[in-house]
């Protein structure tokens, strides 16, 4: 019966591997985000959702200018119109710029929700630094209200040279659709 013991020992080891791999599948999510932060893979947006404190040095203004575009995706167009005030601005890396989006509540009830950002090309997302953005917190619009939603941002000087155009997109999701907890 020594053999039986050995078998159970082997099985226990293998079951342990199984459990670790199960946990690993959940760990893949933060892991993936870390890898994305390092490499800018797949447009990881975590940095877009929080305030960055960047040390801007405007010492070197000889950077090539580049274009930052603003677009929006209106998930529920009938209720909420949500548009950028301007399509494109020319920026110099390292300088702070501002623009704003306009939200119009066309429904008869209060709309609460949050704007979710995305940047293309996605490797550029980690170079777009936001000093202030309406997407950091939940927004509430009264019926008929027209609200200006400002953003203050700068493009990191380390942005790879070959990227000449950045597009920042917001999708506005209403709270009913936003999960309460994650």
């Amino acid at each position: 019966m020594i053999e039986k013991k050995v078998n159970i020992k082997t099985a226990k080891k293998l079951i342990f591997i199984c459990f670790s791999m199960f946990l690993f599948s959940f760990a893949l999510i933060p892991l993936y985000n870390v890898i994305c932060d390092v490499t800018g893979l797949n447009g990881n947006t975590s940095n877009l959702k929080e305030k960055s404190d960047i040390n801007l040095n405007v010492s070197n203004i000889n950077f090539e200018k580049l274009n930052v575009q603003f677009i929006s995706h209106e998930v529920n167009k009938q209720n909420l119109e949500f548009k950028p005030s301007e399509f494109q601005i020319e920026v110099v890396p390292g300088k702070i710029y501002s623009t704003y989006y306009v939200a119009t509540n066309k429904s008869k009830s209060i709309i609460t929700g949050q704007a979710v950002p995305s940047v293309s090309p996605n490797e550029a997302s980690k170079y777009l630094k936001k000093i202030e953005c309406f997407c950091f917190e939940e927004q509430q619009f009264k019926p008929g209200e027209v609200v200006k939603l400002p953003i203050y941002f700068a493009v990191d000087e380390k942005l790879p040279n070959r990227i000449k155009t950045l597009t920042l997109s917001y999708s506005f999701f209403e709270s009913a659709k936003v999960s309460k907890k994650d």
Partner: peptide, 16 residues
Amino acid sequence: FGTSFFNAAGGGDPVM
């Protein structure tokens, strides 16, 4: 159960 692992609206990513 209202998690958003793969839901962009809640901060997730379908590609994940």
